[in-house]
């Protein structure tokens, strides 16, 4: 039996291998995605992000435990950074989720950022789609909320939970980092620690300043993942957010937006890869770099010229 057939029969080994093929952009991966797309579109996508040490993995573990107990099938994607120097990565999020590794309702996949700008968002989206097509009811995506890439991933989700801890310090800083703007739900984990109340108050006052595009009331949920406290509240908030979105826009509009988003990401990824390969092989590029180095031109004028030249190459 081939991999795709096994996949369609619900074989986890095949699911895992297909994710790898997609992640590695192996020849033929587009065909796989094209074939699986027909089965996808049902899963609810939930992003969890926040600073290192906020307890995201523990929260994901608890949510997974709760959802599995109610019979839901859950895919989990845990993203950790790739070392920019060696290209390697240490993926350690499973440590916190090991009690889920034998749960037949749960599938956990660790992903490294692999240093690509934009590429990760695409790979995560594709993996989410593959999991969706496999039949998971929900996909939980955990990222370290630090860079633009992680923010992009979060944007591709139906609901985004931003996780803080009392030690995270002041909320205004987080606002600056762009974390606050992407949240649909705020989660204060380790809420039994000193400083929790202060941070909640601070968050509330900062939230008053947040620009709103709809009437969603941003909830602040307090949890203690280690002690399994507040997880129900968090899940309720996620459900509320889903219901709100469903009542706020028509299913058709949401579907349209989702497709538009996906399409944009895919196109962007393709153009980006194409661009890179064309640029890398182009003699003109080398020459332009040399010219800038020699001082005979500057990057701005050179870029104009390159884009003009490349537009033909890109469409060919």
């Amino acid at each position: 039996m081939g991999l795709l057939e096994r996949f369609e029969n619900g074989d986890q080994v095949a699911l895992a291998r297909i994710i790898s093929r997609v992640e590695n952009r192996r020849t033929g991966y587009q065909d796989i995605l094209a074939r699986l797309y027909a089965h996808a579109g049902r899963a609810q996508r939930i992003g969890l992000t926040g600073p290192p040490g906020a307890g995201k993995s523990s929260l994901v573990f608890r949510l997974g435990e709760l959802l599995s107990a109610s019979g839901k099938k859950v895919g989990i994607i845990a993203v950790d950074p790739t070392s920019p120097f060696t290209g390697g990565a240490l993926l350690g999020d499973r440590i916190r989720m090991q009690d889920l590794s034998l749960d037949p309702n749960i599938f956990i996949r660790s992903m490294a950022t692999r240093g690509s700008t934009g590429g990760l968002a695409e790979a995560t989206r594709d993996t989410t789609m593959v999991m969706d097509a496999f039949g998971f009811d929900l996909v939980l995506i955990e990222t370290v909320g630090v860079g633009q890439v992680e923010l992009d991933i979060a944007r591709a989700c139906d609901s985004v939970v931003v996780v803080f801890v009392p030690e995270s310090g002041d909320a205004v800083q987080a606002m600056k980092a762009g974390l606050m703007e992407i949240a649909d739900i705020y989660c204060l984990n380790k809420a039994d620690r000193d400083g929790a109340e202060r941070l909640v108050l601070e968050l509330q006052s900062v939230l008053g300043l947040r620009q709103r595009t709809n009437n969603w009331e941003y909830p602040i949920i307090q949890t203690q993942a280690i002690n399994n406290i507040g997880i129900d509240d968090l899940w309720q908030a996620i459900k509320n957010h889903r219901e709100f979105c469903q009542s706020d826009t028509s299913p058709e509009d949401r579907q349209k937006e989702r497709i538009a988003n996906d399409l944009l990401t895919i196109v962007r990824g393709k153009v980006d890869r194409r661009l890179r390969s064309v640029l890398r092989d182009s003699e003109t590029f080398e020459k332009v770099v040399a010219d800038i180095l020699a001082g005979s031109t500057n990057p701005y004028s050179a870029a104009e010229r390159l884009v003009a030249e490349l537009s033909t190459a890109l469409t060919s």
């Binding site: 993995s57 240490l90 350690g92 999020d93 440590i95 916190r96 280690i226």
Partner: peptide, 10 residues
């Protein structure tokens, strides 16, 4: 007392 969980490694 509950059980201890290993903290993340890195």
């Amino acid at each position: 007392f509950g059980e201890y969980q290993e903290p993340p490694m890195f």
